[in-house]
């Protein structure tokens, strides 16, 4: 979470919310409609080029993609095995199931890479501005903004608690790990309750008696050149993916 947010704040595209969203929306459409694994590879390669252009740190980006992609890739296994419940129980390799699974994984990984590109290049507060422009309910946006901040506070409290526990019990071994996790979660619950009460006071102290929070928002600017790139890249990619059906 922290590294994503930090990358987004330092990204070259942090002020290009609209363009990045359009770009990622276009790429996402390409990702979900790829007809072959090879096309998936091409979309992924295109996203990787964009990651480099945006100045997103490679290591963190690939690590997150590997973890999330790893989960999805596991699904190939059950889909490529067929079972016969006859007089004799039989397991066999299901080729069509395997091909379907591989295509699904390719689409999912391409989609994940696009989503990660979006969150690594657009700070969350800027995304909220865009959601407001798109007329999302005000209360929901306020809640999202507060939850966003709370997540970091709780994450920080939790890692502090775990470090403090590790200092006292040596922090080694699975038993210690489970113990620390349980204690940490329990303490976190109490802290979260106390914090919500204190945050409420913090909001009230800044002249907001009815509890509404008005956040400052920089107006969204759209520049012609980045906008045409954001439209052009997915369009070229889509034209290449569907070149057969488009007749060239």
């Amino acid at each position: 979470m922290r590294s994503i947010e930090e990358a987004a704040c330092l990204s070259r595209w942090r002020d290009r919310t609209v363009e990045v969203c359009i770009l990622c929306f276009g790429l996402a459409l390409c990702a979900v409609s790829i007809p072959s694994v090879f096309a998936g590879g091409v979309v992924f390669a295109a996203v990787c080029c964009l990651v480099a252009v945006a100045g997103v740190p490679w290591a963190g980006y690939l690590r997150k993609l590997a973890v999330a992609g790893g989960f999805v890739a596991v699904s190939v296994l059950p889909l490529s095995v067929g079972v016969v419940f006859g007089p004799r129980f039989e397991l066999y390799f299901d080729r069509s199931g395997f091909e379907t699974a591989i295509l699904a994984v390719a689409r999912a990984v391409a989609m994940l890479s696009v989503t990660l590109l979006l969150v690594h290049t657009t700070p969350f507060p800027r995304l909220l501005v865009l959601l407001r422009v798109l007329r999302f309910p005000e209360t929901l946006l306020e809640l999202l903004a507060l939850v966003h901040r709370e997540i970091f506070l709780l994450d920080e409290s939790f890692s502090r608690l775990r470090r403090a526990l590790a200092c006292r019990d040596g922090g080694r071994g699975a038993k210690h790990g489970i113990h620390a996790l349980g204690l940490g979660a329990a303490a976190l619950f109490v802290q979260a309750l106390r914090r919500s009460e204190r945050i409420e006071r913090g909001i009230a102290s800044r002249a907001s008696v009815d509890g509404t929070v008005r956040f400052w928002e920089e107006p969204i600017k759209v520049r012609p050149l980045p906008l045409s790139c954001a439209l052009g890249v997915p369009a070229v990619l889509a034209a290449w993916i569907f070149r057969g059906r488009l007749g060239f």
Binding site: P125, R201, I203, S208, E217
Partner: peptide
């Protein structure tokens, strides 16, 4: 409350916006 400003003992009790600018702007906007 708009005339009496309070700095809390624990700064995390009063930092709730996504960026520093947004956070500082919160009071004046209210």
């Amino acid at each position: 409350r708009s005339q009496v400003g309070l700095l809390f003992q624990d700064p995390d009790d009063q930092l709730f916006a996504g960026t520093l600018f947004q956070d500082v702007a919160l009071g004046p906007l209210n």
